[in-house]
Amino acid sequence: MTRVRRSKRWRLLHRVCAILCLSAIQSRAATYYVIVAGLGGEADYEQRFTAAAKDLDKIFRTSEPTGQIYTLVQQQATSSRLKNTLSTIARSARPQDAFVLVLIGHGSFDGSVYKFNLLGPDVDAEEIAEMCNRIASQRQLIVDTSSASGGAIPALRYPGRAIVTATKSGTEKNATVFARYWVEALQDPSADTDKSDSISALEAFTYATKKTATFYESQKRLATEHAVFTDVIGGDPVREAGTGQGYLMSSFTLVRFGDLQQIANNPAKRELLQKKEDLEQKIDTLKYQKAAMDPADYKRQLTAMLLDLAQVQQELDK
């Protein structure tokens, strides 16, 4: 199977996931966010980590006013406080709710154990995993932006959980810049590459990895961090979607700025919505066949479908 074909198939599955996601919205699931700014060690890092955590707090509150958001910075960022917070969520979160944990700071890895640096005792990957495993949410996202965070992946793996780390392994130990671009992704509409009026975890990841790579290229520095993600139980973490990875990430919406929900709740528009979804699937199928098609024929069919879709959207917008 060629790389293109895998990619196209993935898009079809992505569409299915998007529909599932819509269902989740309709059931009024809640999302729990925990943001932790770890120990900086130096004033500069302290300031940077705290600012990033506060920015994320603000972004999530604006995007999802009903979200449950817990942000631990400076003196609050201790192991016991984190454990208490996650225990609180474990008591209230339901399976249909989503859960997001973002760790910003320094990490360490001694060859077998990953630790996230906090004020007082650090917390290791096993402890983080154990606390998160007690949360009933069947859709979880852990974003560990710390140095050496790749070392946490084996411990954090869990069904229904997507894991993003700033480094590919525990051996990438230099301080990272990934967090800066992860936060930027959730503020920059250009991160919404499929123009769905929302930013998924996958879009944020793609944006942040590209910007991180550009940072190192423009500084003429050897990149000391290579972010990866995994959202399946088996297989190696990856840098881009495909080969079975990326379904959960692409359907895990982090920020919304459109009116998807209002349209979905309007019975008068359900027929149009169905037509729209049919067209979207046809377009995906056509794109899947592109490599084997005559370019002119492909363009003709694509243009016709896109025009139909645009007209349907025009009706929906009335």
Binding site: T193, D194, K195, S196, L279, I283, L306, L309, Q313, D317
Partner: peptide
């Protein structure tokens, strides 16, 4: 790339 991109539509 983005079939539902409203301004492009």
């Amino acid at each position: 790339i983005a079939p539902n991109y409203a301004p492009a539509q």
